[in-house]
Protein backbone atom coordinates (compact mmCIF):
# COMPACT_ATOMS: atom_id res chain seq x y z
CA UNK A 1 0.00 0.00 0.00
CA UNK A 2 1.45 3.37 -0.79
CA UNK A 3 2.00 5.90 1.91
CA UNK A 4 -0.68 8.35 0.88
CA UNK A 5 -3.41 5.76 0.93
CA UNK A 6 -2.23 4.55 4.29
CA UNK A 7 -2.21 8.10 5.66
CA UNK A 8 -5.71 8.67 4.42
CA UNK A 9 -6.98 5.57 6.07
CA UNK A 10 -5.31 6.48 9.34
CA UNK A 11 -7.45 9.58 9.33
CA UNK A 12 -10.61 7.66 8.66
CA UNK A 13 -12.64 7.02 11.81
CA UNK A 14 -14.25 3.90 10.41
CA UNK A 15 -10.96 2.27 9.58
CA UNK A 16 -9.52 3.21 12.95
CA UNK A 17 -12.47 1.74 14.78
CA UNK A 18 -12.08 -1.54 12.91
CA UNK A 19 -8.41 -2.12 13.58
CA UNK A 20 -8.13 -0.70 17.09
CA UNK A 21 -10.39 -3.20 18.85
CA UNK A 22 -7.61 -5.53 20.03
CA UNK A 23 -5.21 -2.67 20.77
CA UNK A 24 -7.32 -1.34 23.56
CA UNK A 25 -7.47 -4.50 25.66
CA UNK A 26 -3.81 -5.17 24.94
CA UNK A 27 -2.68 -1.76 26.15
CA UNK A 28 -4.94 -1.75 29.17
CA UNK A 29 -3.87 -5.17 30.43
CA UNK A 30 -0.25 -4.35 29.72
CA UNK A 31 -0.59 -1.06 31.61
CA UNK A 32 -2.19 -2.59 34.67
CA UNK A 33 0.30 -5.47 34.76
CA UNK A 34 3.34 -3.22 34.39
CA UNK A 35 2.09 -0.72 36.94
CA UNK A 36 1.36 -3.49 39.43
CA UNK A 37 4.79 -5.07 38.96
CA UNK A 38 6.67 -1.77 39.07
CA UNK A 39 4.80 -0.54 42.13
CA UNK A 40 5.22 -3.69 44.20
CA UNK A 41 8.83 -3.95 43.14
CA UNK A 42 9.51 -0.33 43.94
CA UNK A 43 7.66 -0.33 47.25
CA UNK A 44 8.85 -3.61 48.66
CA UNK A 45 11.99 -4.79 46.94
CA UNK A 46 14.00 -1.81 45.79
CA UNK A 47 16.74 -0.85 48.27
CA UNK A 48 16.18 2.35 50.29
CA UNK A 49 18.14 5.43 49.29
CA UNK A 50 21.17 5.98 51.49
CA UNK A 51 20.28 9.64 52.03
CA UNK A 52 16.52 9.87 51.68
CA UNK A 53 15.64 6.49 53.19
CA UNK A 54 12.29 5.13 52.17
CA UNK A 55 10.74 8.42 51.13
CA UNK A 56 12.58 8.13 47.82
CA UNK A 57 10.03 5.43 46.86
CA UNK A 58 7.72 8.28 45.88
CA UNK A 59 9.88 8.49 42.76
CA UNK A 60 7.96 5.54 41.31
CA UNK A 61 4.82 7.69 41.29
CA UNK A 62 6.36 11.08 40.70
CA UNK A 63 8.60 10.46 37.70
CA UNK A 64 6.08 8.53 35.56
CA UNK A 65 3.46 11.20 36.28
CA UNK A 66 5.84 14.02 35.43
CA UNK A 67 6.96 12.31 32.23
CA UNK A 68 3.36 11.75 31.19
CA UNK A 69 2.50 15.35 31.98
CA UNK A 70 5.15 16.62 29.59
CA UNK A 71 4.73 14.08 26.82
CA UNK A 72 0.98 14.53 26.76
CA UNK A 73 1.42 18.24 26.20
CA UNK A 74 3.88 17.59 23.38
CA UNK A 75 1.39 15.14 21.89
CA UNK A 76 -1.25 17.86 22.12
CA UNK A 77 0.94 20.09 20.01
CA UNK A 78 1.48 17.34 17.44
CA UNK A 79 -2.23 16.54 17.33
CA UNK A 80 -2.96 20.24 16.98
CA UNK A 81 -0.66 20.50 13.97
CA UNK A 82 -2.21 17.41 12.40
CA UNK A 83 -5.66 18.89 12.85
CA UNK A 84 -4.97 22.41 11.66
CA UNK A 85 -2.43 21.77 8.90
CA UNK A 86 -3.45 18.36 7.57
CA UNK A 87 -7.09 18.51 8.63
CA UNK A 88 -6.96 15.06 10.12
CA UNK A 89 -10.30 14.41 11.78
CA UNK A 90 -9.01 11.95 14.34
CA UNK A 91 -6.54 14.48 15.69
CA UNK A 92 -9.42 16.57 17.03
CA UNK A 93 -10.63 13.62 19.04
CA UNK A 94 -7.12 12.94 20.30
CA UNK A 95 -6.94 16.51 21.51
CA UNK A 96 -10.25 16.28 23.30
CA UNK A 97 -9.12 13.10 25.03
CA UNK A 98 -5.64 14.11 26.05
CA UNK A 99 -6.48 17.31 27.91
CA UNK A 100 -8.13 15.74 30.97
CA UNK A 101 -5.61 12.90 31.00
CA UNK A 102 -2.65 15.25 30.94
CA UNK A 103 -4.27 17.45 33.55
CA UNK A 104 -4.59 14.45 35.87
CA UNK A 105 -0.97 13.41 35.32
CA UNK A 106 0.27 16.95 35.96
CA UNK A 107 -1.77 17.27 39.13
CA UNK A 108 -0.42 13.94 40.36
CA UNK A 109 3.15 14.97 39.55
CA UNK A 110 2.71 18.19 41.56
CA UNK A 111 0.98 16.45 44.45
CA UNK A 112 3.51 13.64 44.75
CA UNK A 113 6.32 16.15 44.32
CA UNK A 114 4.98 18.22 47.19
CA UNK A 115 4.73 15.13 49.39
CA UNK A 116 8.25 14.12 48.45
CA UNK A 117 9.50 17.63 49.09
CA UNK A 118 8.38 17.64 52.73
CA UNK A 119 10.78 14.96 54.05
CA UNK A 120 13.52 15.81 51.52
CA UNK A 121 13.64 19.59 51.44
CA UNK A 122 11.68 20.22 54.60
CA UNK A 123 8.89 22.12 52.85
CA UNK A 124 5.72 21.08 51.05
CA UNK A 125 6.14 23.61 48.35
CA UNK A 126 9.24 25.28 46.98
CA UNK A 127 9.23 27.52 43.95
CA UNK A 128 12.18 25.87 42.28
CA UNK A 129 12.63 25.64 38.54
CA UNK A 130 11.07 22.32 37.71
CA UNK A 131 8.25 22.53 40.22
CA UNK A 132 7.25 25.90 38.86
CA UNK A 133 7.50 24.68 35.28
CA UNK A 134 5.13 21.84 36.13
CA UNK A 135 2.77 24.28 37.81
CA UNK A 136 2.76 26.41 34.68
CA UNK A 137 2.09 23.27 32.67
CA UNK A 138 -0.96 22.68 34.85
CA UNK A 139 -2.11 26.23 34.06
CA UNK A 140 -1.65 25.55 30.36
CA UNK A 141 -3.88 22.49 30.73
CA UNK A 142 -6.43 24.57 32.65
CA UNK A 143 -6.48 27.05 29.81
CA UNK A 144 -7.07 24.36 27.19
CA UNK A 145 -9.78 22.81 29.31
CA UNK A 146 -11.53 26.13 29.89
CA UNK A 147 -11.36 27.03 26.21
CA UNK A 148 -12.79 23.68 25.18
CA UNK A 149 -15.61 24.09 27.67
CA UNK A 150 -16.38 27.62 26.54
CA UNK A 151 -16.95 26.74 22.88
CA UNK A 152 -20.15 24.77 22.38
CA UNK A 153 -19.42 23.33 18.93
CA UNK A 154 -17.00 20.41 19.38
CA UNK A 155 -15.30 20.79 16.01
CA UNK A 156 -14.63 24.50 16.57
CA UNK A 157 -13.52 23.80 20.13
CA UNK A 158 -11.02 21.24 18.86
CA UNK A 159 -9.58 23.68 16.36
CA UNK A 160 -9.29 26.47 18.90
CA UNK A 161 -7.59 24.11 21.36
CA UNK A 162 -5.29 22.88 18.61
CA UNK A 163 -4.06 26.39 17.98
CA UNK A 164 -3.61 27.12 21.67
CA UNK A 165 -1.72 23.85 22.12
CA UNK A 166 0.66 24.70 19.30
CA UNK A 167 1.34 28.14 20.75
CA UNK A 168 1.86 26.52 24.15
CA UNK A 169 4.32 23.94 22.85
CA UNK A 170 6.40 26.64 21.17
CA UNK A 171 6.33 28.54 24.44
CA UNK A 172 7.35 25.66 26.68
CA UNK A 173 11.12 25.92 26.14
CA UNK A 174 10.98 29.64 26.93
CA UNK A 175 8.85 29.05 29.99
CA UNK A 176 11.23 26.34 31.20
CA UNK A 177 14.26 28.51 30.71
CA UNK A 178 12.63 31.48 32.39
CA UNK A 179 11.66 29.59 35.52
CA UNK A 180 15.11 28.06 35.72
CA UNK A 181 16.31 31.62 36.04
CA UNK A 182 15.77 31.10 39.72
CA UNK A 183 18.23 28.81 41.41
CA UNK A 184 17.06 25.30 41.26
CA UNK A 185 17.31 22.67 43.97
CA UNK A 186 15.64 19.80 42.14
CA UNK A 187 17.66 16.69 41.50
CA UNK A 188 18.65 16.23 37.87
CA UNK A 189 16.55 14.30 35.38
CA UNK A 190 16.43 10.64 36.33
CA UNK A 191 16.54 9.27 32.81
CA UNK A 192 18.56 10.85 30.06
CA UNK A 193 18.82 9.37 26.62
CA UNK A 194 22.52 9.99 26.34
CA UNK A 195 23.96 8.90 29.67
CA UNK A 196 23.40 5.95 31.95
CA UNK A 197 21.33 6.77 35.04
CA UNK A 198 23.31 7.50 38.18
CA UNK A 199 21.05 5.28 40.25
CA UNK A 200 21.82 1.61 40.75
CA UNK A 201 19.85 -0.76 38.55
CA UNK A 202 17.90 -2.16 41.50
CA UNK A 203 16.46 1.31 41.96
CA UNK A 204 15.80 2.42 38.40
CA UNK A 205 14.53 -0.87 36.99
CA UNK A 206 11.15 -0.66 38.77
CA UNK A 207 10.96 2.97 37.71
CA UNK A 208 11.41 1.97 34.10
CA UNK A 209 8.63 -0.61 34.48
CA UNK A 210 6.28 2.00 35.94
CA UNK A 211 7.12 4.53 33.24
CA UNK A 212 6.36 1.96 30.54
CA UNK A 213 3.13 1.10 32.35
CA UNK A 214 2.14 4.75 32.47
CA UNK A 215 2.67 5.12 28.73
CA UNK A 216 0.63 1.98 28.08
CA UNK A 217 -2.13 3.51 30.18
CA UNK A 218 -1.96 6.62 28.04
CA UNK A 219 -2.21 4.50 24.90
CA UNK A 220 -5.13 2.48 26.26
CA UNK A 221 -6.93 5.65 27.30
CA UNK A 222 -6.36 7.20 23.91
CA UNK A 223 -7.62 4.20 21.97
CA UNK A 224 -10.65 3.70 24.21
CA UNK A 225 -11.72 7.33 24.09
CA UNK A 226 -11.19 7.52 20.37
CA UNK A 227 -13.30 4.44 19.74
CA UNK A 228 -16.02 5.91 21.93
CA UNK A 229 -15.93 9.27 20.32
CA UNK A 230 -15.95 7.76 16.85
CA UNK A 231 -19.06 5.72 17.57
CA UNK A 232 -20.81 8.76 19.01
CA UNK A 233 -19.89 11.13 16.27
CA UNK A 234 -20.67 8.71 13.48
CA UNK A 235 -23.78 7.26 15.02
CA UNK A 236 -25.92 8.18 12.05
CA UNK A 237 -23.58 6.69 9.52
CA UNK A 238 -24.22 3.43 7.75
CA UNK A 239 -21.45 1.36 9.27
CA UNK A 240 -22.29 2.20 12.88
CA UNK A 241 -25.91 1.25 12.26
CA UNK A 242 -24.82 -2.01 10.75
CA UNK A 243 -22.71 -2.57 13.82
CA UNK A 244 -25.70 -2.06 16.07
CA UNK A 245 -27.96 -4.18 13.93
CA UNK A 246 -25.69 -7.08 14.65
CA UNK A 247 -24.19 -7.75 11.29
CA UNK A 248 -20.76 -7.07 12.75
CA UNK A 249 -21.29 -6.77 16.46
CA UNK A 250 -18.06 -5.82 18.11
CA UNK A 251 -18.95 -2.81 20.13
CA UNK A 252 -17.01 -2.40 23.27
CA UNK A 253 -13.38 -2.74 24.13
CA UNK A 254 -12.68 -6.33 23.24
CA UNK A 255 -13.33 -8.06 19.97
CA UNK A 256 -16.25 -10.32 20.72
CA UNK A 257 -17.43 -13.38 18.87
CA UNK A 258 -20.00 -12.89 16.22
CA UNK A 259 -23.49 -12.94 17.58
CA UNK A 260 -26.43 -13.38 15.32
CA UNK A 261 -29.06 -11.38 17.19
CA UNK A 262 -28.09 -8.00 18.37
CA UNK A 263 -30.45 -6.37 20.77
CA UNK A 264 -30.25 -7.84 24.28
CA UNK A 265 -26.72 -9.15 24.13
CA UNK A 266 -25.20 -5.71 23.97
CA UNK A 267 -26.42 -4.76 27.37
CA UNK A 268 -24.45 -7.56 28.98
CA UNK A 269 -21.30 -6.89 27.12
CA UNK A 270 -20.12 -4.37 29.60
CA UNK A 271 -17.64 -1.83 28.61
CA UNK A 272 -14.07 -1.06 29.25
CA UNK A 273 -11.50 -1.97 31.76
Amino acid sequence: MNFKAWWHRLGSPKWFYRVSGPWQSLFLSLALALLAIGTVWGLAFAPPDYQQGNSFRIIYVHVPAAMLAQSVYLLLGVAGALLLVWRMKLAGLVLETLVPFGMGATALALFSGAIWGKPTWGAWWVFDGRTTATLVLLFLYFGLHALRRAIPDPAAASRACALLAIVGVINIPIIKYSVHWWTTLHQGATFKLTTAPAMPAAMWAPLLVNVLGAYCLLAANLVAKLRNAILRRERSSRWVRDLMDGSQPSIGPAPSPNRPSAAPSHSQRSAAP
Partner: peptide, 30 residues
Amino acid sequence: YVWLAYGAALALLILHLVRLRADWRKTLRL
Protein backbone atom coordinates in the same frame (compact mmCIF):
# COMPACT_ATOMS: atom_id res chain seq x y z
CA TYR B 1 4.41 10.52 52.76
CA VAL B 2 4.93 7.36 50.76
CA TRP B 3 1.43 6.01 51.25
CA LEU B 4 -0.17 9.37 50.61
CA ALA B 5 1.58 9.60 47.25
CA TYR B 6 0.74 6.04 46.24
CA GLY B 7 -2.81 6.46 47.51
CA ALA B 8 -3.29 9.52 45.33
CA ALA B 9 -1.93 7.65 42.33
CA LEU B 10 -4.21 4.69 42.97
CA ALA B 11 -7.23 6.95 43.44
CA LEU B 12 -6.50 8.69 40.18
CA LEU B 13 -6.07 5.36 38.38
CA ILE B 14 -9.37 4.05 39.70
CA LEU B 15 -11.15 7.27 38.84
CA HIS B 16 -9.72 7.00 35.37
CA LEU B 17 -10.89 3.41 34.89
CA VAL B 18 -14.34 4.24 36.22
CA ARG B 19 -14.61 7.11 33.78
CA LEU B 20 -13.56 4.91 30.87
CA ARG B 21 -16.23 2.42 31.84
CA ALA B 22 -18.88 5.10 32.21
CA ASP B 23 -17.87 6.38 28.80
CA TRP B 24 -18.54 3.04 27.14
CA ARG B 25 -21.86 2.73 28.92
CA LYS B 26 -22.90 6.13 27.68
CA THR B 27 -21.90 5.34 24.12
CA LEU B 28 -23.81 2.09 24.14
CA ARG B 29 -26.88 3.82 25.56
CA LEU B 30 -26.65 6.50 22.93
